[in-house]
């Protein structure tokens, strides 16, 4: 599951993520993080048998968790399948199909926005 975690300023100094990994049997991958003393956001991918308990723990510690179904969205109408985005993707989430239709793999996407900012027709959007 991918989710945005929102940290309020009063909890940024607590080692919550460290405790999370120590206490629960989960796999945890930080895709993006922007956390300052004023609070912040983190995009994570979490999986494992104790996923539910881990999420409850984060809730108790004051992290707001917002699950997302889609990290990135391609507007099929706007996309001209030029492929300018392919080589900009740091995780190889954008690949051409056999017929050169440009395909975005949402599971791989880390929402870095490199493609969004460089799309000539503004056809890719990172979901917030």
């Amino acid at each position: 599951m991918k989710a945005w975690l929102t940290f309020s300023p009063n909890i940024v100094s607590k080692p919550i993520i460290s405790n999370l990994v120590k206490n629960y049997d989960i796999t945890f991958n930080i895709l993006r993080a922007d956390i300052t003393p004023k609070g912040g956001k983190m995009l994570i991918e979490i999986s494992g048998t104790q996923q539910k308990q881990a999420i409850d723990f984060m809730g108790k510690e004051g992290i707001h968790l917002n699950p997302i179904n889609k990290v990135v969205k391609k507007d099929e109408e706007k996309c001209i399948d030029c492929g300018a985005c392919i080589s900009l993707c740091p995780v190889e989430a954008i690949k051409p199909a056999e017929d050169w239709t440009i395909e975005v793999d949402d599971l791989k996407c880390i929402g870095c926005s490199f493609c969004t900012n460089s799309c000539p027709t503004r056809a890719i959007r990172v979901m917030e």
């Binding site: 399948d81 300018a84 392919i86």
Partner: peptide, 14 residues
């Protein structure tokens, strides 16, 4: 090894 991108649409060309 460096990734490449086309700038023109190969799909539309066909």
């Amino acid at each position: 090894e460096v990734p490449t991108s086309p700038l023109s649409s190969q799909k539309k060309a066909l």
